[in-house]
Design a protein around this nucleic acid. Structure first.
Lengths: 231, 231
DNA sequence: CCATTAAGATCGATCGATTGATCTAATTTC
DNA sequence: GAAATTAGATCAATCGATCGATCTTAATGG
């Protein structure tokens, strides 16, 4: 039963990869839970099940381990968003509106269907306010492609340029209405009087999200955006 | 011209109040910038222009200073949201839809018209993920009243019960679409390709927000919420 | 009215504990 | 046995907290 010895060409290399993976996983979870300064290198090593010196040996130091955690979660997020952006760039439904509907549903599924712990989400939130530079890498790699694909389809649907700020703003509102339910978890749960996000709650959310797409994202601007001024 | 000697009945009390205020202001700014564990008590004291021992003397310790900062910013936020919830509870426009439109504009003005530094917003974000208990106090005091007033008017407009999750969910989406532009600042700026939130950008936002209210918040559910299933 | 005393508030120095980093010796793999 | 990797011990630096001394203000006595 050598279930995971396929890539094990070298025993040292495997041990190295495993130790690094354990440390990165511990880093994402613990940095996400408490923030960079709230976690000590000893706690990280204990959680990862390795010695304290392994951090310095494999990454150079605490800061470099954090960077590796950012790169790791960026790659993971890229995999998630690729599922969605592929929907938007597929040929299947020719109608942009239909593609948008499906893509938003797929995005919703990615955000609420996975089993990533909340600490991973918190890690991303902390990144954006603690280390904007690190967040920049993450955003460009994982979220920019999705945003671009969304803007292209939305612009086609509205028959305007994808560079119009109206288009990008709509895309932001639509996507982050969903995203904020995870990034802003505490406020969201309190707002709805919920204590958890179980399957029952997620089903309710999905219905509203569908409505949201039609309203905020795809509805033609018509007269309500320019006609009423501010009277 | 004794502009601020009205309440100064006691010299000691005044010195105490001033020192406490300086420490709390420094705490909000520095905790917001870097998080609880990223800031040392020495840095806090330096920023506040007081001695290190003043923290223990006036608050008991670093943790208690943080709690005092939460209470302070909660009271401040309560003042901001009261401006908006008053709009929703006023008699002036009898039409709930019109009250909602005005209130959302007022909320937008509160969020983008003030001169509170971004570190204050970050303080709130950190609260929600670092100390949910502290955030609970803050939410109940400052945001719950606004949310309730919003739900009441929205329910009246849609002719349903304010307890319907559809109503609360709509209110969340509408309000947090705006709020997330500040709490999720880095992603928002990158999404729009902006580098700052100046008056020009805020003017653009206001137009879209107006549209958002009509679309996501006040538009009748019609057939798109229940009719299409998930085909 | 001024001098004296008590209380309130601040400050610099220092405590033990913990931090990230480093070093050495032991273990594992080839 | 040589190289790679790990664990345990230890480093200087910094952490939050505490102490006594100093300064400011309020209250008291003459």
């Amino acid at each position: 039963m050598e279930q995971d010895e396929g890539v094990r060409s070298n025993g040292h290399a495997m041990r190295t990869a495993e130790t690094r993976a354990c440390l990165i996983e511990a880093a994402i979870a613990m940095f996400g839970d408490g923030g960079f300064d709230a976690v000590s290198t000893r706690q990280l090593a204990d959680r990862a099940g390795v010695g304290l010196a392994a951090i310095a040996y494999h990454f150079g130091g605490k800061a470099e381990l954090f960077e590796a955690a950012v790169a790791s979660i960026a790659e993971y997020c890229r995999g998630l968003t690729r599922e969605v952006s592929d929907q938007l760039e597929a040929d299947a439904p020719a109608d942009p509106a239909e593609r948008l509907t499906r893509a938003v549903r797929a995005y919703f599924g990615v955000l609420f269907g996975g089993d990533e712990p909340q600490s991973w989400v918190n890690f991303l939130v902390r990144c954006s306010i603690d280390t904007p530079d690190a967040y920049d890498t993450l955003y460009e790699a994982a979220f920019r492609p999705l945003e671009t694909a969304l803007a292209v389809n939305l612009a086609a649907h509205l028959a305007v340029s994808p560079d119009e700020q109206e288009v990008r703003l709509r895309a932001y509102i639509a996507t982050h209405s969903i995203v904020s339910m995870r990034t802003n978890r505490e406020a969201f749960l309190r707002h709805l009087g919920w204590t958890d996000l179980g399957p029952a709650q997620i089903r309710i959310l999905e219905g509203i999200v569908t409505s949201l797409v039609h309203n905020a994202l795809m509805l033609k601007p018509a007269a309500d955006n320019k006609g009423n001024g501010d009277a």
